[in-house]
Amino acid sequence: MHLNKNRVFDIIVYIISFLFFTTLILLLSGIFFQTSLHLFLKELKDAGLWRSVLLSFKLSFIVILVNLIIGIPVAYILSFKKSKISFLLDIISTLPLTTSPLVIGFAVLITMGALNPIGKFFIDRGIKFVFTPQGIVLVQLIISFPFFVNIVKTSFDSINRKMIDLSKTLGASSFDILFKIIIPLAYNGIIAGLAMSWSRSIGEYAATQMVSGVIPGITETAPIEVFVKTSYGNYPAAIAISGILMIISLFSLGIFKYFNYKTGIQSSNG
């Protein structure tokens, strides 16, 4: 009997993917089997839970807003002004992606502390980054920024450079080019980048915890609440928040995949 190698290949690939997929689903959905629906619903009525979720929303919204304002110019430089300096900028802005979030949180904690000249500078002017919501915004910004910039840069990269050059000769200044051509053409990429960085920032725990100080209602974000509830042994509450966080991730991932897919189609159409 002849062995069909291609079929064997397909079987191996599918089996590995399937095993991974089911394991992941079981792991993630496991938390829902630890509680009863009644308890789960009861915990959802808890005001503290929603306070933390709302805080997470508020802070992550500010984070993606700042991402948008800083990220587009940075992505512009990385994509359209390629040079040795932009290469360095690329590395620096992507560094948080590969650094432990805990280290980043720790670095911010130290730098923004009263003993550091930079921290002192801000504290003297009444701006505190340690144990404050501002501090959380700062670390989440550092951590989610690379996601946004890289996705936007990729969609900027797919824009035809000859077209950009040509638009200059039609009288378009750099402002016109950015607002009338680049941003409309990179729209899908920007939305995808926002969804990704939003989801990263809303689920951020380690770095946030470092600078948050866990002050209920002020710096206690949803992921921190999960940790706090777990350490008190209040599993149903932790499960409720985890469930909400997971739904949020699923939702934002859906947005990301949808727009990223659209970008892919667009660029393959020319």
Binding site: M163, L166, K168, I181, L185
Partner: peptide, 20 residues
């Protein structure tokens, strides 16, 4: 003089229309 102030539009081998 910056390119956008020159009034010397370019027409290339591809139309390069703005797809949006």
């Amino acid at each position: 003089t910056e390119s956008y102030k020159r009034r010397t539009p370019l027409v290339m081998d591809e139309p390069l229309l703005f797809p949006n």
